[in-house]
């Protein structure tokens, strides 16, 4: 018995490897840009704008990356959930016009909150149906998955046209969300600050769920080895469905936030984001929520700084960023361990 303890326990204590380099990129990038941008107020405005956009992209991308990590399914139609979310939001925001136009923070917040809840419920349910009807027959078949989810996206976009008509829908921001706070010389748009808050809330909630709850641990375990999760006695199918619904609902949330940001809706609003969302999850490492968060911030910040410093470069800044990151880490910032 004693030998056991000797040999087995006295092995050198492994260092806990916390990979902080990717975490540092965002602040370092922001600081580096300060002298280049030149003016501090402009820099603050650009940075906040970048963070706000990044948060919204994160809402759309986090679900996609989690679904991919757990189920090995890449939903090319994820953008459709963003669109559906945004359009569902209008079902609340347009009829309750007086609440939107009211000069009351409380009324504005509650009407947007209601729109978000409805959008998330609808996209969540849609996700459930999508998983059952579209995805389930093609688990493990990547080629068919790509084709079928692409087809699902085309159908969904067209159905939005059928239901809401082919015209653009104006979606004005609530009264009290308009304008900006002026701090010193820096103008901070209110809605961007709201987006940052919502995005952070989503991120922290996801972080807590994934690290502190049994379901979260199971999801992380399932990302690495779904078979073992089953062998421990858990039905991974239920996790799949749950995560797919949650991911779709998050896309719906992102849709409402993004729609309000753009203030007009077209059926392609989500589809247009697909490329950006893909770049973000590739940069982050397919399947990694933390990587996705950093990726979203990076892409959005780089786009904003580039747009200011070199507008022509901004057109391809996200691709260049992706290539740079992949040259540094071919699997993305936080590669996900797979069995």
């Amino acid at each position: 018995m004693t030998t056991t303890q000797m040999t087995l326990a006295d092995a050198e204590l492994p260092k806990v490897r916390v990979d902080i380099l990717p975490l540092l990129i965002v602040p370092v990038l922001a600081l580096l840009m300060l002298p280049l941008v030149g003016s501090f107020p402009t820099w603050v405005t650009l940075t906040v704008a970048g963070l706000a956009m990044g948060m919204m992209v994160f809402m759309m991308a986090s679900g996609l990356t989690l679904i991919f990590g757990l189920m090995d399914v890449l939903n090319f139609g994820h953008g459709a959930f963003v669109s559906v979310g945004a359009f569902t939001g209008t079902l609340v925001l347009l009829p309750m016009k007086n609440w939107v136009e009211a000069d009351s923070v409380l009324m504005n917040l509650s009407v947007v909150g209601l729109a978000i809840v409805l959008a998330m419920v609808v996209t969540g349910l849609l996700g459930w149906a999508f998983e059952r009807i579209i995805i389930r027959p093609v688990y493990g078949l990547h080629l068919k998955q790509i084709l079928i989810t692409m087809g699902g996206m085309i159908v969904a976009e067209q159905l939005i046209h059928v239901i809401w008509g082919a015209e653009q829908i104006p979606l004005p921001l609530p009264e009290t969300f308009r304008g900006a706070f002026i701090i010193g010389d820096a103008a901070l748009e209110k809605y961007r600050l709201i987006a940052v808050c919502v995005g952070l809330t989503v991120f922290i909630t996801m972080f807590l769920v994934l690290n502190r709850t049994k379901v979260g641990l199971l999801i992380r375990a399932g990302v690495e080895n779904g078979e073992m999760v089953e062998a421990l006695g858990y039905r991974i199918r239920r996790l799949f469905v749950g995560v797919f619904m949650a991911g779709s609902a998050l896309a719906g949330l992102g849709g409402v936030m993004w729609g309000l940001y753009k203030e007009t809706l077209t059926a392609a609003i989500g589809g247009e984001m697909t490329v950006l969302v893909f770049i973000v999850i590739i940069i982050g490492g397919l399947g990694s929520v933390g990587g996705c968060f950093i990726g979203a911030m990076l892409v959005a910040l780089v786009a904003n700084y580039a747009g200011f410093l070199a507008p022509k470069l901004a057109l391809v800044s996200d691709i260049l960023l992706m290539v740079t990151i992949l040259l540094w880490r071919p699997q993305g910032l936080y590669p996900v361990a797979k069995r």
Binding site: L217, E227, M228, A231, Y234, R235, A337, R339
Partner: peptide
């Protein structure tokens, strides 16, 4: 029977590859 049911019936499995969740702590 599906794997989870077999597991719940009282069989535990230590696979050849060990099937450790490397991202999770030993406790988890």
């Amino acid at each position: 029977a599906p794997t989870p049911d077999i597991s719940c019936a009282g069989i535990a499995y230590v696979p050849e590859s060990m099937g450790i969740f490397s991202d999770l702590t030993v406790r988890e």
